[in-house]
Design a protein around this nucleic acid. Structure first.
Lengths: 233, 233
DNA sequence: GATTTCCTGCGATCAGTGCTCGCATTCGAG
DNA sequence: CTCGAATGCGAGCACTGATCGCAGGAAATC
């Protein structure tokens, strides 16, 4: 298991590359056809190999999907982090809105991949446990903004029941106090963010909202206000 | 097309009943296996007929799913309406919370059916157009509460850009003014409601929220406050 | 350097799926 | 009573995910 990250032998190198190629082709197919239509055999065909050969790299179709999910969470998280980092750290509302907008734009650019992350869980019905890390990156960003605001005094947290609602260890990890409602507000904003994106992307606001961008901005600022962010960053 | 609702001949009667039976068996299978695993052949087997016979009743698997979706929206809407009707009409916050709680409980009781409604759109990627009616019933309820509050003076609407965000004809249908933000808040609450349910059901708040019921109540009241509902109904 | 183990790809195969089509049977309207 | 429409059946097509035994070649061991 040592030196897993640095493939020494030629065999390991070509295996790593072929694995990456399979994922890449799969993501392309995912983007055009959707997750339900993703066929392991079609991926194999496009790579010029027979279907059973793919099973040397992924034990099942669901494992391939899980890889796509993890990479998707990572890509989305990185996009949000980059967008937030481009805003002055003191501009709390600006960072908040940057995270929201980046997440929406990432989703709009690849709806099927987004649906894989935040739609119905497709592999069986068990939430993949090893995806919790990458999946939380966006929420981490939002929590970080609140923590910074708390430290700088820009935010005065309202008293609340966080310790009874949010997993206590998580609050500690996030650096948030236990007797306020900041943790709840973070989760609410997180859930509201992807709820809004899902509603737009899955067509629920079709024939309801005419200016989706403006609506989204409205939701983002409302959630920011709920979390205690002052209107002027 | 006349007298569609009252089947006269024996043939029409048995056809209507068999159609209903197919849907019922399909919903059972959906509840245990999930939408992706719903097999038309399995449904046919359970009904003692051959798979091709089902095609006399539903032109395709997706049409069967569409029927399940529409019936699901209707059932969910009816559950929410009944819960809201059980609260005194003057208790605005009580009605609001009743809608929220009823929707969550409906979803928790049948996660797969809920996922069919508010998860990733499964038939191809086109949002079924004939589902927009039943799908809006919950949103209609929320809008009705705000309209009542506006009429009784319990709510004073904040000025807003609704006419630029929400489809104007819809605002008129809902009886909401055009120069406030009530329409936007309704949609935000609607989206936040199902965002919260989806997050809980799809496992995103696993290892994050410990008391889901309390958290949900918190979100519901926060969205009510955003919409202008006073804390005491 | 020779040998043996392991890795990899192949082809055949299995069970299952959605869906189509032609053939009987049966029901209901004329 | 007759004829057409509705209904069910079974075979069949093209496809899927997944398994298995077999061959060739790379890698590790002797």
């Amino acid at each position: 298991m040592a030196e897993r990250s640095a493939p020494r032998t030629a065999r390991e190198r070509v295996r790593a590359q072929l694995t990456a190629e399979i994922v890449e082709v799969a993501r392309t197919h995912l983007g055009t056809s959707g997750a339900a239509a993703l066929s392991l055999r079609a991926v194999a065909r496009e790579l010029g190999m027979v279907s059973s050969a793919v099973y040397r790299y992924f034990p099942s179709r669901d494992d391939l999907l899980t890889t796509l999910i993890i990479e998707g969470y990572d890509a989305l998280g990185e996009a949000a982090e980059r967008a937030a980092a481009a805003v002055p750290a003191s501009d709390l509302l600006g960072r908040w809105l940057a995270v929201f907008t980046a997440a929406r734009e990432w989703a709009l650019a690849r709806p099927h991949e987004y649906a894989l992350l935040y739609g119905s869980p497709v592999p069986g019905y068990s939430a993949p446990q090893d995806t919790t890390g990458p999946a939380g990156r966006v929420a981490l960003l939002l929590a970080g903004i609140l923590r910074d605001g708390l430290a700088s005094g820009a935010i005065t947290a309202a008293p609340g029941d966080d310790e009874a609602i949010i997993l206590p260890g998580l609050l500690a990890d996030l650096g948030l106090p236990e007797d306020t409602n900041l943790g709840t507000r973070v989760v609410q904003a997180w859930s509201g963010l992807f709820g809004a994106i899902s509603f737009e992307l899955f067509g629920h606001t079709h024939n309801v909202v005419v200016d989706h961008e403006k609506y989204f901005h409205e939701v983002a600022t409302a959630l920011a206000a709920d979390a205690g962010l002052p209107s002027l960053g």
